[in-house]
């Protein structure tokens, strides 16, 4: 059961990351279009810079849980790498519980509240184009939630190694 949940979360993180990683293409496209319009046709857009910013912001936020499931977040594991597997799992579970969970739970709640304030005001950017920015803030809250989910999966996996019968 638990391992199914963990696996499900891992698959979800991977799939959503692979899907949203394609945001890099419109990001590239918008920047190139802006250069072309300004330099080539002397008619810069009023939306180019902001659009670029939004795409970049969403791109990396969607990436945080994906990078986690790929083991891509840099860590100083020169000390723990030498320990037996069960000890590693114990340290992993402990650090996830102590260092990760409290922060990410609070971040999910706080960024959710932050987005909610913005939604209620239908907040727009303070620019000429004035695009709505509440969707971006919603993405931020959502991505912290995704990361939190991934943390649960990591915790389950570490606990399973820790309590497995297998001697390592």
């Amino acid at each position: 059961m638990l391992s199914k949940i963990a696996k499900g979360i891992d698959t979800f993180s991977t799939k959503q990351g692979e899907f949203t990683s394609m945001l890099i293409i419109p990001l590239l496209g918008v920047v190139l279009y802006e250069v072309l319009m300004r330099y080539g046709f002397n008619s810069p857009t009023i939306w180019g810079f902001e659009m670029t910013g939004f795409l970049y912001g969403m791109h990396y936020m969607f990436g945080i849980s994906y990078t986690d499931v790929r083991g891509g977040h840099v860590r100083v594991d020169i000390f723990t790498a030498l320990a037996p597997k069960k000890v590693q799992a114990a340290i992993g579970a402990l650090t996830t519980l102590v260092l990760f969970m409290p922060v990410m739970i609070c971040m999910t709640v706080a960024s959710g509240k932050y987005a909610w304030t913005s939604i209620q005001a239908l907040e727009r950017n303070s620019t000429s184009w004035q695009p709505p920015i509440y969707p971006i803030k919603m993405v931020m809250a959502l991505c912290f939630f995704f990361l939190l989910l991934q943390g649960f999966s990591n915790l389950i996996k570490d606990l399973q190694i820790l309590f497995s019968k297998e001697e390592r």
Binding site: L27, V31, C106, M107, K137, M140
Partner: peptide, 23 residues
């Protein structure tokens, strides 16, 4: 504290200079 952290995260999400990183 976490409202401040949320503010900071959003600020990074709209920091135009950093757009160069993924590119």
């Amino acid at each position: 504290l976490f409202d401040m952290f949320a503010n900071n995260t959003y600020g990074l999400m709209e920091n135009y200079v950093l757009v160069a990183i993924p590119l």
